[in-house]
Computed example of a mutant assay.
Amino acid sequence: MKQPNGYHLAELNVGRLLAPTDDPRVAEFMANLDRVNGLGKRMPGFVWMMEGSGEPGTGNTENAIGGDPQFVANLTVWEDVASLEQFVWGTIHKQFYERRQEWFELLGDQHFVMWLVPIGHRPGLDEALERLEQLRRDGPSEHAFGWAELKQASKWRDNRCAEVAAE
Rank of each mutant, 00 (worst) to 15 (best):
G120S: 05
G59N: 05
D109T: 11
V77P: 11
Y7L: 11
D23H: 15
F87Y: 14
A165P: 09
G90A: 06
E62I: 14
Q101H: 14
R160G: 05
F145L: 10
E130K: 15
F96T: 11
K41A: 13
K155G: 01
M50I: 01
M49D: 03
G146R: 13
W147E: 03
E102A: 13
E51Q: 15
I92S: 12
P20G: 08
E79R: 15
M1I: 10
E28M: 07
A166R: 09
V47F: 03
P4L: 13
A166I: 04
G54F: 08
I119L: 04
D138L: 10
M114E: 02
R131Q: 14
M114H: 09
A82C: 03
Q86P: 00
G40I: 06
D138I: 00
Q86Y: 08
N63G: 06
P44D: 11
D22H: 14
V72K: 12
F104H: 08
N63Y: 02
P4K: 14
D23P: 13
I119C: 11
V164R: 15
R35Y: 11
S53T: 15
L125P: 05
T21A: 15
V14Y: 02
K2W: 01
I119Q: 14
R25W: 00
Y7C: 13
P20F: 06
Q95D: 12
R16H: 01
F145H: 07
E98G: 07
S154E: 12
G67S: 05
P123Q: 11
P69C: 05
Q3G: 01
T91Q: 10
D126E: 14
D158F: 03
L106Q: 13
R136E: 02
M1L: 14
N74A: 12
H111L: 00
K155P: 00
E127K: 04
A165W: 02
V117A: 12
M114T: 09
A64W: 04
N159T: 06
G66Y: 08
G52Q: 10
L135N: 03
T58K: 15
G139H: 07
L107I: 09
A31F: 00
A166D: 03
L9A: 03
G67N: 07
G52V: 09
N37W: 00
L17W: 05
F145S: 07
Y97C: 00
F112S: 03
E163K: 13
E130G: 12
D22T: 13
R16L: 07
G57A: 08
G57D: 02
L39Y: 01
T76S: 14
A128K: 10
Q101G: 04
N63M: 11
L129D: 09
H93L: 04
F46R: 11
Q101S: 14
D80S: 14
M114C: 13
Q86D: 10
R122A: 05
R122L: 00
G90E: 01
G108E: 13
A144L: 04
S83A: 15
L75M: 10
N63V: 04
G146Q: 11
R16V: 14
